[in-house]
């Protein structure tokens, strides 16, 4: 009986050792990957990474989505909108249409190359606008558009850091001289395997932190065999100047498919508007 117990113990001990070995073997690639992430990137690698992020933000196919936008105001309560976004990166066109609430339904933005038009249904007025902050929220049109970081900014590697449990590359961007951009400096925390920015911080020229953005719940969108892209289904934007204000952007529906050219016209937006 005692011998039997000893045998079982020895067997278990052996099995545990085996299990440990097996576990180590299984975890080896992960451990090696984490350990093999270079602790720094040279300038060429940084530039390549930023360029890849630009490419990943662009779609070869057209894109349309329905998005909830919630603005949490420190004092005045929450604003909640639903909007439709249509994007055609190849022609550099973007249409945004407010769907809800009814007080804002019909308001729309149309970006055609470098022309930004705002339609005001109450007066039937089309104006080129320069203020692109969207309807009292912390978002602006650039949040819905593709990136052109490699052209507009020079990039510098900061460190390999951890964002929660995830190792990320921290890259600092500084606006190139003579180029007009929304933020003079940007900090990016990039997931190394897929090259997506999970966290973005934007700074003013004075060095003051303006906004922090977290992009989560990434989901693969697109049909098998065609262009498939990871999209952050939830984005949280924190106003760092007025603490307590934040905007949450949740994608309700999204599709990568060819859109009719008419969607990017004044006539179409007017027809959908009030």
């Amino acid at each position: 009986m005692i011998r039997q117990v000893l045998y079982i113990r020895k067997h278990i001990r052996n099995n545990i050792t085996l299990a440990r070995l097996l576990l180590m073997f299984l975890l080896f690639p992960v451990a090696v990957t984490a350990n093999t992430l270079p602790t720094s990137l040279n300038q060429t690698e940084v530039n390549t990474l930023v360029k890849k992020m630009d490419e990943l933000s662009r779609f070869e196919t057209d894109f349309n989505a329905e998005i909830f936008l919630q603005q949490k105001h420190r004092e005045k309560g929450d604003l909640l909108y639903k909007m439709a976004v249509f994007r055609q990166d190849q022609s550099n066109h973007l249409t945004m249409l407010f769907l809800k609430p009814k007080t804002d339904a019909g308001k729309g933005y149309l970006v055609l190359d470098k022309n930004l038009f705002l339609y005001t249904p109450n007066t039937g007025d089309w104006t080129r606008v320069s203020e692109d902050r969207i309807s009292g929220t912390d978002t602006n049109l650039a949040d819905f558009d593709d990136w052109n970081l490699s052209e507009e900014y020079s990039a510098e590697f900061v460190a390999l850091e951890k964002l929660g449990e995830f190792p990320v590359y921290h890259i600092a961007l500084t606006a190139r001289p003579g180029i007009q951009v929304k933020a003079q400096r940007i900090g990016l925390w990039i997931e190394p395997s897929k090259s997506f920015a999970l966290k973005v911080q934007e700074y003013a020229q004075s060095g003051r932190l303006l906004r922090t953005t977290y992009r989560t719940k990434w989901r693969k969108v697109g049909d098998e065999g065609e262009t498939q892209r990871f999209i952050p289904m939830e984005t949280r934007i924190y106003d760092e100047v007025e603490k307590g204000n934040q905007t949450i952007m949740v994608i309700d529906k999204i599709a990568l498919r060819q859109l009719s050219k008419e969607i990017f016209t004044k006539a179409w937006l007017e027809a959908k508007s009030r």
Partner: peptide, 19 residues
């Protein structure tokens, strides 16, 4: 009233704001 024909011809008939 507003309607479109073939997504190419957009009609608005009646009293409407314009600028």
């Amino acid at each position: 009233i507003k309607f479109s024909i073939d997504q190419g011809y957009y009609f608005t008939l009646g009293k409407q704001p314009t600028k």
